[in-house]
Amino acid sequence: MTKTPDKINLAHSTVLLVDDQPTSLDLLSSIVQGFGVREQLKCHAAKDAVELLQRRAVDLILVDCAMPEMDGYDFVRWLRREAAEPARFTPVIMILGHAAHARVARGRDCGASYIVAKPLTPSVLLRRIAWLGAHSRDFVEVESYVGPDRRVRNYGPPPGEEGRRQTDLSGDLGEAVEANMDQDTIDMMLKPMKVNL
């Protein structure tokens, strides 16, 4: 794994912003503009975003979870299951306002790459974007879930980054704490043995 870089280059990227609240959309747009994004596209409804993604590709999507008609969760589920490739692999950051625990889990299970709860600071948002740009996650497709591997917690935060949870593991491999096993010992462990039951 590579360390999250100190610089960020969004000068070639197109970002899609989806939020039904015009003021929130303006604020999000201001943040993204500050990050140096080349092009931003705005949709006031998830249905408009669906239509847009059927016509053209984007590099990153920021979507609010709470919207009338089609909400953020349904939008991401559509993207992961029904959109054509490579659009369905597009990283998605879902933004939550009042984030009950169940909503965070719902966001993770619909296929969002990251869920960011408000208050939304540019620093937190940019860090998530930097992670998405620097680190790969497998894309998982099973009947009950389609999206980036949700077991990201098992890998811990990227090297050099501090996690936010007490249970976060480190992504770095430390020095060996004891001597390597010799080959005979390993062979013995793998060798089928007869047992008396």
Binding site: N9, L10, H12, T90, P91, L132, A134, S136, F139, D149
Partner: peptide
């Protein structure tokens, strides 16, 4: 389960 390694367009653009 189908598990794929994916390099997104965001990763390509940000690596420039």
């Amino acid at each position: 389960p189908r598990i794929r390694k994916v390099r997104t367009s965001l990763q390509r653009q940000m690596a420039r």
